[in-house]
Simulated assay, not measured.
Amino acid sequence: MLGGTHLGRFSKLAIITLAFATLPLLAIAPAQAGSNMAKVDIVSEGIDLAPIYVSSNANGYTGSEPAKHKFMVRVFAKASGQNRVWKVAIHGLKGVTFFQKDVGKSEGWDVYGKSHEFWAKPGEVKWMTTPKEACDANLKKMVAAGKTKAQVLANDRKTQALAFVYFTAFADSKAHNKKGKHESGGGIEPHNDNTAYTVPVVCRMAL
């Protein structure tokens, strides 16, 4: 389960509109007072211009095609005091992990900061606006502007969707890290952040 940092950030993201191009970078998330983690952060780092495709028929859009999409992010975790980061992970939906690494039996990282690329199917990602929802919204907008549904579906249409990518980091004492033991206390407490990620979408014409 994601912790308090995630919940606070999620509530902020809930007010984001479809004006994705104007999204600001999210600030580094400070850990709670007394925590063994000082900061945890994830930001998007570029957009894969290859779109996610949404299929359609004469009745409307039917869903995302299953091809994988590339995501590019930069993550940052800094332990507090004499603690060290011992594990980091990037993930999507519950149970879906795109990247994970730990320090093994070593003192750990004072700071972990790195750019990562990973590929994910649409069904593996948590969406604020799914590709199909983005196509449906675009269809509704164009019909309201005077086009018929058939006219809209007669051509491919471009739009954008909004995904969430999550980052989790763990910190513990150097002694615990060297032993590889994190069974209790703050060493197994997750510290979380997430970022809103813009994804280009092509709403396919109905065949």
Rank of each mutant, 00 (worst) to 15 (best):
F118L: 09
A144Y: 05
A134H: 04
V165I: 12
F170K: 13
F118W: 10
K39H: 12
K174P: 00
I47P: 04
V201P: 05
A29M: 11
A120I: 10
D41I: 02
T148E: 00
E189S: 05
G60W: 03
Y197M: 08
K181C: 05
K181V: 15
A29S: 13
D193L: 08
I42N: 09
M37K: 00
G34S: 10
F10E: 15
F99L: 11
D110R: 11
V103A: 14
A50C: 00
S11A: 15
A145D: 11
I15K: 10
T62L: 12
G146D: 10
F170C: 09
G34T: 11
K121N: 12
F10I: 14
A79V: 04
A38K: 14
K149H: 03
K78L: 03
V85Y: 03
G34H: 05
K94Y: 02
L2K: 13
G113P: 01
E133T: 09
E183D: 14
F20Y: 15
A134E: 04
G180H: 01
F20H: 15
G180C: 03
G92N: 07
H91G: 05
S44N: 08
T159N: 09
E124S: 11
T195C: 09
Q100G: 13
L7K: 14
G8H: 04
G92M: 06
F10M: 15
A171V: 09
I52W: 01
G108D: 11
H182F: 03
R204H: 06
K101W: 06
P131V: 07
L13T: 06
D41S: 12
T148I: 00
H91E: 06
N194W: 02
T17A: 10
A27M: 01
G95Q: 07
T195M: 04
S56G: 00
D110Q: 12
K78A: 06
D102I: 05
F10S: 15
K149V: 08
P190L: 07
I28R: 11
Y61R: 12
R157D: 05
K149C: 04
R204E: 09
K147R: 14
A33W: 02
K68M: 13
A161E: 07
K158M: 14
H182N: 07
V85D: 05
I15M: 06
V88W: 01
N138K: 15
N36T: 14
A137L: 14
V202Q: 00
L23M: 14
R9G: 08
P51V: 04
N155P: 00
L49K: 13
M37Q: 03
K174L: 01
K141H: 08
R74W: 03
G104A: 07
S80C: 00
L23F: 09
G34L: 06
N57L: 01
A31G: 15
T97L: 03
F99W: 10
S35V: 03
Y53Q: 03
A21F: 13
H191R: 07
A171N: 13
S55F: 01
K181E: 11
P122E: 09
